[in-house]
Amino acid sequence: QDSQLGPNNVSMGELDRIAQNIIKSHLETCQYTTEELQQLAWQTHSYEEVKMYQSKPRDALWQQCAIQITHAIQYVVEFAKRISGFMELCQNDQILLLKSGCLEVVLVRMCRAFNPLNNTVLFEGKYGGMQMFKALGCDDLVSAVFDFAKSLCSLQLTEEEIALFSAAVLISTDRPWLMEPRKVQKLQEKIYFALQHIMQKNHMDEDALAKLISRIPTLSALCTLHTEELQAFQQLHPETVNVLFPPLYKELFNP
């Protein structure tokens, strides 16, 4: 395989090594295994539990969500660290890529914990629908996140593809202020070739990769919307954000 050349003269052996490393990193750093998610898939929050979430004060539910997001982000940081080549980037670029991409990866990973058959997502141990997040007061964001998860699920990605797509989203030259964009670009290109290779193997649909890549602008729009909603919330509840939100969440998202 090492003598067989793939795109851009990268050997097929190297593409395979990159793919295997990223898939392993993904599987080691997912909060739930595929089997665990399958077992939980039909365990939904009861009517009373949903009512309880709905009747929470707005700031309490925001805090709960911030805690869950922060927890998920810690796993994404660990995923990034295990990707060969990531820790070889300069520290500035490691931080920049994570700061700008971690929430996007959390949203990609969320499709694993989304049941498209009843439009529910895993939250605090059980599945629940959009109405569970009503008290957040940002229906547009919640509904956009659910729409995104449903649309990503419709592509029926394998764990391998989710892993490589997550890495491609994270290691992106589109982020401003990179100090070594060439180095990031080289890594990104290899990840894309590996993703392309796997998708061609797994999908009959020739446009599957194009369809997947076309979801990236939505991811970025969701993160912008999240920042805007956070700013609006912070204006109304500055104390909640300053005192009760996880420090990592504030470090990543505070204006």
Partner: peptide, 20 residues
């Protein structure tokens, strides 16, 4: 570095899946 103290720390820490 100061601005991203926690992220910086997380990047420096050596962790295993068990720690997660």
């Amino acid at each position: 570095k100061e601005k991203h103290k926690i992220l910086h720390q997380l990047l420096q820490n050596s962790t295993s899946p068990v720690d997660l």
